[in-house]
Design a protein around this nucleic acid. Structure first.
Lengths: 242, 242
DNA sequence: TAGGAATTGTGTACAAATTACACGACTGCG
DNA sequence: CGCAGTCGTGTAATTTGTACACAATTCCTA
């Protein structure tokens, strides 16, 4: 940043006036929370209560507080709005088109989160919060559809090399469930034998001595993530491994 | 964003008071400008003229203006500070630790840029601006060292699949130059025969009927990027292909 | 002008990963 | 008891990755 810009910044701070020139851009975070249910990838949305977006759905977000790190804000949002703690979160990008927000200039930083819908029953049962299938998404508020799209792209890339996908599954799962999940995320069908071979190659999983017991067909073996394997990405965008 | 937060936002806007609660986070952009010279990857830095960082180097950056898109700001910064136009720029991530800026709360969005040092002679010869080798980088202002590190990681991934690397080279170049550049970015040596095979496979280049004429050894063939091939990444982080 | 230094241009053998593809066995259910 | 749905498994063909060597060209210098 230039010295000139900084001087103005300091002046504005010390005099507590004229903030309009340098502080009238608000910054928010928005969370793209993915879940997996009934063989579909879903995203958690909230009914927008903003007039301009009456009846449209939007991401969970909030303004960043003056005394919190940017990367901490989405954790707070998730905790406050859904009761979710200890979730996988990763910064994806920032969106700041001039007119993206009807009420003023707001730049938002988007994060994506992966949670297991069954484990993390929403504790704060705000009945305006719902899981939506990624198909047929429409009428989203702001630029939230675009944000979801970018997060989905990131997710698709990340599941190929890093064991983040297991954040979407229960502790024990079958290879079929895992394959269904990959297929839902990638939007393509995978060959079953090749898929199993590839997963075996990655050495992420331990085979259990248990079988599925809730399926209307021959049950498959259950697996769990290897003890000690972090289900987070190895490198966070901000360089900080949680 | 919640309705509650938005109401506060609107109140703050209409009354033009109390901005301190919602608008006292400033937002900036910082550019990590990579160049290639003498077989080394370099980054363009400016002497920080901020007291707290006397004699330290920093990235080129500026506060985002109220009437410019976030993604437009780094183009402006480059134009104003170096005279560079029409360069490759890509958003990498946002950095917002509470205390990252000594003068106040500033969240910054980092972009990386690839330019050809020779073609783009810095038009604004601000003698505080210099190219630095990526080795021996130290004493950078703010969190700029970390930002550069994250941008470098992004660059390393991106050059494997997308033809962005050619932004760093002149129009005509030899395969040796290209290999030297890959090696400088990746920090490893590559096998020459395998490298050439791999590049050929990508079909990014056209072979010219010209040879190098400025080397103290047997000259190699010159190549150029295939006509029509965009040297940008296929997908920008914000989903917008420039 | 001959020899040395540096680099060009080229191919093959082996290992590893990717893809396409089929069948018998098991379980629940009607 | 038979059908529907899924499990568990292997091989052959192809593509990709890796390791590795030698003769030819050009410049430079002694």
């Amino acid at each position: 940043m230039t010295a000139e810009a900084l001087k103005k910044l300091k002046t504005a701070e010390s005099e507590k006036i004229s903030h309009i020139d340098y502080f009238n851009i608000a910054i928010s975070v928005d969370c793209v929370i993915f879940g997996f249910e009934k063989k579909e990838l879903r995203v958690l949305l909230i009914k927008s209560d903003l007039e301009e977006f009456a009846d449209k759905w939007s991401l969970l977000g909030d303004l960043v507080k003056i005394d919190e790190d940017l990367d901490s804000a989405p954790y707070r949002v998730l905790r406050q709005r859904t009761g979710l703690e200890d979730v996988f979160l990763q910064q994806v990008g920032s969106f700041g088109a001039i007119n993206r927000h009807p009420s003023g200039r707001v730049i938002t930083t988007a994060y994506y989160s992966l949670i297991n819908i069954r484990n993390h029953k929403l504790k704060i049962t705000d009945n305006e919060v719902h899981w939506h299938s990624l198909k047929n998404l429409k009428d989203l508020a702001f630029d939230h559809k675009q944000i979801i799209e970018v997060c989905l792209q990131r997710l698709r890339i990340q599941i190929m090399d890093e064991p983040v996908i297991f954040n979407l599954l229960p502790e024990k799962f079958s290879l079929r469930e895992l394959q269904d999940l990959y297929q839902a995320i990638l939007g393509i069908k995978l060959d079953r034998r090749n898929f199993r071979k590839k997963i075996a190659l990655k050495k992420w999983l331990d085979e259990l001595d248990e079988m599925e017991d809730d399926v209307p067909h021959r049950p498959g073996k259950l697996y769990k993530v290897k003890t000690g394997l972090k289900k987070n990405a190895l490198v966070e965008i901000a360089g900080k491994t949680k």
